[in-house]
Amino acid sequence: MTAPGPDSLRALLEALRPDEGDEHISLRQIIGHVGDRSFSGLVLLIGLILVSPLSAIPGAPTMGMLIIVTTTSQYLLGRDHLWLPAMLLDRSLDRDRVERAIDFLHKPLGWVDRRTRRRLPFLTHRPLKWLVVLTIMATALPWPLLEPLPMVTSIGATAISLLSIGLVTRDGLFVVLGYAFLGALGVTLFQVWGAIW
Protein backbone atom coordinates (compact mmCIF):
# COMPACT_ATOMS: atom_id res chain seq x y z
CA MET A 1 0.00 0.00 0.00
CA THR A 2 1.67 3.18 -1.20
CA ALA A 3 2.66 5.75 1.40
CA PRO A 4 0.54 8.90 1.31
CA GLY A 5 1.59 12.31 0.12
CA PRO A 6 1.61 13.94 3.59
CA ASP A 7 4.98 13.43 5.34
CA SER A 8 3.66 12.88 8.88
CA LEU A 9 0.68 11.28 10.56
CA ARG A 10 -0.61 14.64 11.77
CA ALA A 11 -0.29 16.02 8.25
CA LEU A 12 -2.27 13.02 7.01
CA LEU A 13 -4.90 13.75 9.67
CA GLU A 14 -5.29 17.22 8.18
CA ALA A 15 -6.64 15.54 5.03
CA LEU A 16 -9.87 15.19 7.00
CA ARG A 17 -10.19 18.94 7.47
CA PRO A 18 -12.81 20.49 5.16
CA ASP A 19 -11.75 23.21 2.73
CA GLU A 20 -12.20 26.80 3.80
CA GLY A 21 -15.89 27.73 3.71
CA ASP A 22 -17.15 24.14 3.37
CA GLU A 23 -19.55 22.84 6.00
CA HIS A 24 -18.94 19.21 5.04
CA ILE A 25 -16.13 17.08 3.67
CA SER A 26 -16.76 14.16 1.32
CA LEU A 27 -14.67 11.06 0.78
CA ARG A 28 -13.98 12.40 -2.72
CA GLN A 29 -12.35 15.49 -1.17
CA ILE A 30 -10.35 13.39 1.30
CA ILE A 31 -8.93 11.28 -1.52
CA GLY A 32 -8.15 14.50 -3.37
CA HIS A 33 -6.11 15.62 -0.36
CA VAL A 34 -4.10 12.38 0.03
CA GLY A 35 -3.98 11.19 -3.58
CA ASP A 36 -5.61 8.21 -5.31
CA ARG A 37 -2.47 6.09 -4.87
CA SER A 38 -2.56 6.41 -1.09
CA PHE A 39 -4.22 3.10 -0.31
CA SER A 40 -2.68 2.77 3.17
CA GLY A 41 -3.27 6.45 3.94
CA LEU A 42 -6.98 6.15 3.24
CA VAL A 43 -7.30 2.95 5.30
CA LEU A 44 -5.52 4.67 8.19
CA LEU A 45 -7.84 7.68 8.00
CA ILE A 46 -10.92 5.42 8.08
CA GLY A 47 -9.46 3.54 11.04
CA LEU A 48 -8.82 6.82 12.86
CA ILE A 49 -12.35 8.05 12.14
CA LEU A 50 -13.73 4.92 13.78
CA VAL A 51 -11.42 5.27 16.78
CA SER A 52 -12.59 8.86 17.25
CA PRO A 53 -16.03 10.04 18.43
CA LEU A 54 -17.12 9.96 14.77
CA SER A 55 -17.61 6.19 15.23
CA ALA A 56 -20.87 6.98 17.04
CA ILE A 57 -22.49 8.23 13.82
CA PRO A 58 -25.14 5.68 12.76
CA GLY A 59 -23.90 3.69 9.77
CA ALA A 60 -20.27 4.79 10.18
CA PRO A 61 -18.87 1.28 10.94
CA THR A 62 -20.68 -0.24 7.94
CA MET A 63 -19.52 2.55 5.64
CA GLY A 64 -16.00 2.20 7.03
CA MET A 65 -16.04 -1.53 6.32
CA LEU A 66 -17.15 -0.93 2.72
CA ILE A 67 -14.38 1.60 2.12
CA ILE A 68 -11.66 -0.52 3.76
CA VAL A 69 -12.67 -3.76 2.02
CA THR A 70 -12.97 -2.02 -1.36
CA THR A 71 -9.60 -0.29 -0.89
CA THR A 72 -7.69 -3.35 0.33
CA SER A 73 -9.22 -5.55 -2.39
CA GLN A 74 -7.97 -3.21 -5.08
CA TYR A 75 -4.51 -3.13 -3.54
CA LEU A 76 -4.36 -6.94 -3.48
CA LEU A 77 -5.48 -7.00 -7.12
CA GLY A 78 -2.53 -4.77 -8.01
CA ARG A 79 -4.35 -1.60 -9.03
CA ASP A 80 -2.16 1.51 -9.21
CA HIS A 81 -4.98 3.96 -8.55
CA LEU A 82 -7.86 3.73 -6.14
CA TRP A 83 -11.40 3.57 -7.49
CA LEU A 84 -14.50 3.87 -5.33
CA PRO A 85 -18.16 4.03 -6.40
CA ALA A 86 -19.93 7.38 -6.32
CA MET A 87 -22.14 6.09 -3.50
CA LEU A 88 -19.06 6.06 -1.24
CA LEU A 89 -17.24 9.04 -2.73
CA ASP A 90 -20.19 11.35 -2.16
CA ARG A 91 -20.65 10.42 1.51
CA SER A 92 -19.80 13.42 3.66
CA LEU A 93 -19.13 14.34 7.26
CA ASP A 94 -20.23 17.45 9.11
CA ARG A 95 -17.47 20.03 9.62
CA ASP A 96 -18.03 20.44 13.37
CA ARG A 97 -17.85 16.68 13.98
CA VAL A 98 -14.69 16.41 11.88
CA GLU A 99 -13.02 19.32 13.66
CA ARG A 100 -13.73 17.66 17.03
CA ALA A 101 -12.30 14.36 15.77
CA ILE A 102 -9.14 16.09 14.51
CA ASP A 103 -8.69 17.78 17.89
CA PHE A 104 -9.23 14.41 19.61
CA LEU A 105 -6.58 12.67 17.47
CA HIS A 106 -4.03 15.44 17.00
CA LYS A 107 -2.06 14.96 20.21
CA PRO A 108 -1.87 11.13 20.14
CA LEU A 109 -0.78 11.15 16.49
CA GLY A 110 1.87 13.74 17.31
CA TRP A 111 3.16 11.39 20.02
CA VAL A 112 3.26 8.52 17.49
CA ASP A 113 4.94 10.74 14.87
CA ARG A 114 7.84 11.40 17.23
CA ARG A 115 8.39 7.69 17.81
CA THR A 116 8.10 6.15 14.35
CA ARG A 117 11.18 5.15 12.40
CA ARG A 118 12.24 2.41 10.02
CA ARG A 119 12.16 -0.79 12.11
CA LEU A 120 11.53 -4.38 11.05
CA PRO A 121 11.00 -3.16 7.47
CA PHE A 122 10.46 -6.67 6.10
CA LEU A 123 7.01 -6.65 7.77
CA THR A 124 5.93 -3.71 5.60
CA HIS A 125 7.11 -5.11 2.27
CA ARG A 126 5.79 -7.94 0.12
CA PRO A 127 5.01 -10.74 0.72
CA LEU A 128 4.39 -10.02 4.42
CA LYS A 129 2.65 -6.76 3.51
CA TRP A 130 -0.08 -8.85 1.85
CA LEU A 131 -0.67 -10.59 5.18
CA VAL A 132 -1.06 -7.21 6.88
CA VAL A 133 -3.58 -6.10 4.25
CA LEU A 134 -5.56 -9.35 4.54
CA THR A 135 -5.61 -8.95 8.33
CA ILE A 136 -6.97 -5.40 7.95
CA MET A 137 -9.68 -6.66 5.59
CA ALA A 138 -10.67 -9.55 7.89
CA THR A 139 -10.82 -7.24 10.90
CA ALA A 140 -13.21 -4.83 9.14
CA LEU A 141 -15.58 -7.42 7.64
CA PRO A 142 -17.66 -8.11 10.81
CA TRP A 143 -18.31 -4.42 11.55
CA PRO A 144 -21.86 -4.27 10.12
CA LEU A 145 -22.89 -7.09 12.49
CA LEU A 146 -21.16 -5.42 15.45
CA GLU A 147 -22.56 -1.95 14.77
CA PRO A 148 -25.45 -2.26 17.27
CA LEU A 149 -22.90 -2.72 20.08
CA PRO A 150 -21.73 0.77 21.16
CA MET A 151 -18.08 1.55 20.40
CA VAL A 152 -17.18 -2.13 19.79
CA THR A 153 -15.98 -1.41 16.26
CA SER A 154 -13.56 1.14 17.73
CA ILE A 155 -11.59 -1.80 19.17
CA GLY A 156 -11.08 -3.33 15.73
CA ALA A 157 -10.42 0.14 14.30
CA THR A 158 -7.59 0.56 16.82
CA ALA A 159 -5.93 -2.59 15.51
CA ILE A 160 -6.40 -1.45 11.91
CA SER A 161 -4.94 1.95 12.79
CA LEU A 162 -1.83 0.34 14.32
CA LEU A 163 -1.31 -1.91 11.29
CA SER A 164 -1.88 1.01 8.90
CA ILE A 165 0.53 3.25 10.80
CA GLY A 166 3.12 0.54 10.28
CA LEU A 167 2.48 0.55 6.52
CA VAL A 168 2.34 4.33 6.18
CA THR A 169 5.55 4.96 8.16
CA ARG A 170 7.31 1.70 7.15
CA ASP A 171 7.69 0.96 10.87
CA GLY A 172 7.24 -2.78 11.38
CA LEU A 173 7.05 -2.33 15.15
CA PHE A 174 3.55 -0.90 14.73
CA VAL A 175 2.61 -3.91 12.61
CA VAL A 176 3.74 -6.11 15.52
CA LEU A 177 1.69 -3.98 17.92
CA GLY A 178 -1.35 -4.37 15.68
CA TYR A 179 -0.98 -8.14 15.60
CA ALA A 180 -0.41 -8.21 19.38
CA PHE A 181 -3.54 -6.11 19.95
CA LEU A 182 -5.62 -8.49 17.83
CA GLY A 183 -4.09 -11.49 19.59
CA ALA A 184 -4.92 -10.07 23.02
CA LEU A 185 -8.44 -9.31 21.83
CA GLY A 186 -8.85 -12.88 20.56
CA VAL A 187 -7.67 -14.35 23.88
CA THR A 188 -10.04 -12.07 25.81
CA LEU A 189 -13.02 -13.02 23.65
CA PHE A 190 -12.15 -16.73 24.00
CA GLN A 191 -12.03 -16.40 27.80
CA VAL A 192 -15.31 -14.48 27.92
CA TRP A 193 -16.94 -17.09 25.69
CA GLY A 194 -15.63 -19.87 27.94
CA ALA A 195 -16.94 -18.13 31.04
CA ILE A 196 -20.40 -17.73 29.51
CA TRP A 197 -20.66 -21.31 28.33
Rank of each mutant, 00 (worst) to 15 (best):
S8F: 04
S8A: 11
L13F: 05
L13N: 01
E14G: 01
D19H: 13
H24S: 04
L27I: 13
R28G: 06
Q29G: 11
I30F: 10
I30Q: 09
H33Q: 11
F39D: 01
F39L: 01
L45K: 13
I46N: 03
G47E: 02
L48V: 04
L48F: 08
I49Q: 10
I49T: 11
P58T: 03
P61N: 03
T62L: 01
T62C: 00
M63Q: 12
M63N: 11
M65C: 13
I67D: 05
I67L: 13
I68D: 06
I68K: 07
V69E: 15
S73P: 04
Q74F: 15
A86T: 13
A86Y: 08
R91N: 12
L93P: 01
R95C: 01
R97M: 15
R100T: 09
A101H: 12
F104R: 02
L105G: 02
H106G: 02
L109P: 11
D113K: 01
R115I: 02
R115K: 08
R117T: 11
R118P: 00
L120Y: 14
L123G: 03
L128D: 02
L128E: 03
K129S: 07
W130N: 14
L131P: 01
L131A: 10
L131C: 04
L131F: 11
T135F: 07
T135Y: 06
A140I: 12
W143V: 00
W143M: 01
W143E: 00
L145Q: 07
E147K: 01
P148W: 13
L149H: 08
P150C: 09
M151E: 09
M151F: 15
G156Y: 12
G156K: 11
A157V: 10
T158E: 00
L162F: 15
L162A: 09
L163A: 04
R170W: 13
F181A: 06
L182H: 10
L182S: 07
L185Q: 08
G186Q: 05
T188L: 15
T188H: 10
L189I: 15
W193Y: 12
W193H: 10
W193T: 05
